[in-house]
Design a protein around this nucleic acid. Structure first.
Lengths: 201, 201
DNA sequence: ATCTTTATGGAACATTCATTCCAGAATGCA
DNA sequence: TGCATTCTGGAATGAATGTTCCATAAAGAT
């Protein structure tokens, strides 16, 4: 019928996502997006309507391609402790590939910059938080059973929420620290603490 | 000799700080700063030289007036567990006064927005991180002794670093959640986990 | 009281940004 | 090959930003 797209909508989001991830919404200019995506301004506006919509699409893509697979690791193994270890290894591996200081977690970054002021971002961020807590609860519950832990559900819920929030501190921290080993040590410390807590009466 | 200042330099920083704290550097316009401080643009530029210098002054003020007193709580009591509880109560109390969702921690916010791109901010943020870890180590060591914990220094250092990083997750989280109780539950969970870890052989 | 000196704050400026627009290009169809 | 349709990307636009500048005002010194 007519001229086809030189780059698909998905491909456009894929190229924009790393920029928003690393520099945030405000510090990513439309010029930078044009340069990184290799398409003109008109294409971006006709496809998305504006910078904010493109950002939301990038955030959604991050959830699907990066965050959700990480969350899936938490529930993918019957060994709860191994699952939690795998979750952290996944993100630490991401930072290892990109080099330190790393980009952190796109969602955690949005939590500070945009979520407090943009309802749509807040919704996406909260949805991720809920999913993360729920997945941590699965892993923690499995680990508790394996250890024969006497802890009740209420306490496991409390622990899962703590782990989910604590892990977000790691991604913030990953944006400023140069030594990948510090991320590793965090993971080790967390696993040891969790093990002690579950074994405790 | 000449006309005195209508508002001291410190007072100017004091009024600018909450703006940068809540909205960050990029989203805080010079107009907003002029409105909040009640002085003209000329005064800001003659006193500081620019927006970035004013931001750095605000960050420094935050460290002195908000963060350092919090860190001091960690070393101010011989009871290590009580000290850690006081540290979190201090920040949670801050959020209770301002209403939720809260502003989080100015330094933690800067960690995501500016520190990766501005060396001076990175330096300030890292200095704070070092101080926080050191103070946590003091409190954790005291708590370990009180519990008769068998853990060695290396492990206490690891635990202190974990707690410092985990606590920063809480301040990020505090920017998006409406229920103050969630911050409380984080504190409770953290104290329980720490206690278990220290008691563990 | 006058003069000197310094702060003041609004106006003006240059820059940067997101957005809009349109002439031309590229494809599929007849 | 020629037409119709849709995408393309750079130029134009208008708003907002950080910064500079200067006439004015205010206080201390003499």
């Amino acid at each position: 019928m007519a001229r086809p797209r030189s780059k698909s909508r998905d491909e456009l989001v894929a190229r924009a996502m790393p920029l928003f991830w690393e520099k945030g919404f405000g510090a990513t200019s439309m010029d930078a997006l044009v340069g990184a995506t290799g398409v003109g301004r008109g294409a971006i506006y006709s496809d998305f309507g504006g910078k904010e919509e493109l950002f939301l699409a990038a955030l959604e893509r991050y959830r699907q391609r990066i965050a959700d697979p990480a969350i899936a690791l938490l529930t993918g193994t019957d060994d709860g402790m191994a699952a939690i270890r795998a979750f952290f290894d996944y993100f630490i591996g991401l930072h290892a590939k990109r080099g330190m200081p790393g980009p952190g977690c796109f969602i955690a970054n949005s939590m500070t910059e945009l979520a407090p002021h943009r309802p749509e971002v807040l919704t996406a961020v909260n949805a991720h938080g809920d999913a993360l807590r729920a997945a941590f609860l699965v892993a923690v519950t499995r680990a508790a059973r394996a250890f024969g832990s006497p802890l009740e559900t209420d306490e496991l819920v409390e622990i899962a929420a703590f782990l989910a929030t604590a892990s977000q501190g790691l991604w913030s921290y990953g944006r400023t620290v140069s030594d990948l080993g510090e991320l590793e040590r965090f993971k080790v410390a967390l696993l040891k603490m969790l093990r002690s807590r579950l074994l405790q009466a």
